[in-house]
Design a protein around this nucleic acid. Sequence first.
DNA 1: AGATGTTTACAGTGAC
DNA 2: GTCACTGTAAACATCT
Length: 271
Amino acid sequence: MPRPLRNSYGNAKPPYSYISLTAMAIQSSARKMLSLSEIYQFIIDHFPFYRENQQRWQNSLRHNLSFNDCFIKIPRRPDQPGKGSYWSLHPDCGAMFENGSFLRRRKRFKSIRKSYGAMGKVATTQHHHQKSAQLQTNLKDVDSESKNDTSPRHPFAIESIIGSTEKHLASMNSTESFSPLPLSNINHTMSTPCGAYSTSLTTNAVNTSSLYHQTDLWKMPANTTYLPPNVNLPVQNTCTDFLRESMYYPQVRPSFAPLPGNLCRNGMLFH
DNA sequence: AGATGTTTACAGTGAC
DNA sequence: GTCACTGTAAACATCT
């Protein structure tokens, strides 16, 4: 039986960014993906601060979901009616945070495919300038990090976040008290939250089709070959009893359709 | 209509 | 001072 998340913030604003809060919510779910309203509910349930001014922070949260590549959108299946899509975490977004602290990210996560796609666009806004600069950094980082990256790739478990933050705040001599859950390090293999996305990342097709966005998969050539959907990526992860039972593979079964035979109205694939 | 998602803009903050 | 990240607001489009 999962233990409820404990926190000691009361009505004070938690020291977590919306990205961290959203990642916590997603990671705490059994299928590693949540609808927008479920993300809202998780935050409200666990952090009383966010029971106020909901319109304000929910707008910010939606902005973060759309703007940050670490979040990926998964369309609903036709037999799962409801508003909006599901949101999950990009499989490669684990190394975003500095020294495991979730108070501030080390750098903005940028998906490789989107990055390549963005190269052809003219940067006109401040964000675009930032993205272009980040792109150059990321493109340089891709190779070195893939060769020499020993950091956990999925650090978004709640207790991982809170535990890391506890260390961070302790180092800052914070007077805020934490009640972190006990940590236990477990090495295991974890598949990615979004099979469709991760699988596409692991196919040779991506190497030659890096410009394709998730929602553009239907544009891939009909002879594109895909690896089986349950491609497991070896990662180290830290989890507790709270998440252990849900730490493994999501029940999302991706389906790939080289031809647009099962497109949603918005051009996304059913899974 | 209301919820959801995208985009632009800008100010604040911390690290370097 | 610059850069990167974050939070907020707002306009707009799309979907249920």
